[in-house]
Amino acid sequence: MNNKRVILEELEGYRKEALKWTTITIVTFAIGALLAITGFFFLVLVGIIPAIISGKKNKEFKMRYKNYFLASQFEEVFETPVNVDLSGYSESKIKNSYLIPEGNRFYSDDLISLEYKGVKINRGDVTIQTVTSTGKTTTTVTNFQGQYMVFSFPKNITEFMVIKENAFFGNKPGGMFSNCPKTSKVEFESIEFNKMFDVYASNEHEAFYLLTPQFMQVIMDFRKKNSHEVYFGFMNNEFHVAVNTGKNLFEPSILKSVTTSDSEFDKGHIYDLKDMIEQFRLMEE
């Protein structure tokens, strides 16, 4: 408890430093902008130095906050050591899954790795956008923003399969010139499941082997419980789950004290992640 208090106090110090320099930056730019009206335009540039310092301070606070909080909150729930990689997933990992929509801008952070009851878990935030510029205007469309999870799976997965929500024009993975494994659409016995999802698999037999009637029911229940678009993938002996929540979780605010952040920290997502292991029966039987 004392240790936690010491860490929180230290973090609070970093937060206040970040807030101080952010305030200085804003004030300096504001004064510079006002003085620029008088003709001394270069004075706006005075704000650049505090902006650089503020950027560094904010980054340092964020890094320490996440390294402490994320790791400790996950360790509290899972009762196992946790590794935090702030750089998130690599772009190639996500792109080569052919699971979530593509774009020309990729961002990822907060990759948490742990092992729970024999199940390897990776969880990270991913944002994919398409930015188009016509010269006069720039349009940014967010194709995916949410959580991307990769689990080890108790069955042998030798082929490739993706499960996406039903789309009118179809949503077959990959394109004509992509390296995506060749897939065909698979229909199952459950009419409700076929209405909710499109399944594309490189091997029909393995599709039926992985998607048992019980597993299909779990997927449908998961989707009904979530109000967001969901994606599932089976590849390279991994089970991928992506949820398009529209949010990047665990982002700290320099405006809120660290003690308040700690007491308000919502562990809901972490408990949901733990529940998924039971729901999808990811533990070896």
Binding site: F188, E189, H205
Partner: peptide, 17 residues
């Protein structure tokens, strides 16, 4: 045996489909 049964189930469901 468990795995083989699951494969047989899958083969049956695919065939019947």
């Amino acid at each position: 045996i468990f795995d083989v049964e699951e494969h047989l189930q899958a083969a049956r469901r695919l065939y019947n489909s």
